[in-house]
Structure formats: structure tokens, C-alpha cells
Amino acid sequence: MDRSPPVIVFPPESGGGRRVTIRGEAVGTAHGLFDVLELLHSAGLPAVDTAVDDPELIEWRGGGPYDWNDGEADER
């Protein structure tokens, strides 16, 4: 059985931010890790800082959790 992560964070957009879906539904645009954690919390998912590195929870497309500005690393 193929189980994909419930959260997908899409590549950085030209206007800034990354689209986020949870269980196939668009839930917003994140502009940093704090936004991702807020979206996880709102959906009742683990919202601890280690969650961003959990491949069973989040699939990062077009860059990892520290890529936010069209592929440039986030400096937070």
C-alpha cells in the first residue's frame, strides 16, 4: 500500500511563498516554517519544529524546508 505524506509543500512561487495542501485540500500559502507549523496545528497535525523534517508527514517539492525565495535558502 502506497501511503504518501498528508502534507505537500509546493515549490516557491515567483510572488513569494509556497502553496500547502493537507490531505489533498489547499490550506494556504506559507512564507516560512512558522506558517507551515501554523497550518499543521490548524489541521490537528503535529506542529512541533521536528515535524518539518518528517518525510512521513510532509513532502517538500522544489526544495526543502529552508528554501523559500525561488530556491534561495531562507535566512531565518
Rank of each mutant, 00 (worst) to 15 (best):
G32S: 14
L45S: 14
W68E: 03
E59Q: 13
P6N: 06
P65G: 14
S4T: 15
R19Y: 11
E59I: 08
G62T: 07
D35R: 04
G28K: 10
G17Q: 13
I22M: 04
P6A: 14
A43C: 08
D53Y: 15
V9H: 14
R19M: 08
V36S: 11
W60N: 00
R23K: 15
H41L: 08
V20Q: 14
G63F: 06
V52G: 01
D49E: 15
L33M: 14
T50P: 01
R61C: 11
A43P: 07
E13A: 15
D2Y: 02
P65L: 07
E13L: 13
I8A: 11
H41I: 02
I22H: 00
D70G: 10
D53A: 15
A51M: 07
F34L: 02
L57R: 01
W68M: 04
I58F: 03
G63V: 04
A43M: 05
R76C: 12
V48Q: 11
G24Y: 02
A47I: 01
D49F: 13
D49W: 13
S4L: 13
G71P: 07
L45Q: 08
T50M: 03
G63Y: 02
D54E: 02
R23V: 10
V20T: 06
I58V: 12
E25N: 12
D2C: 00
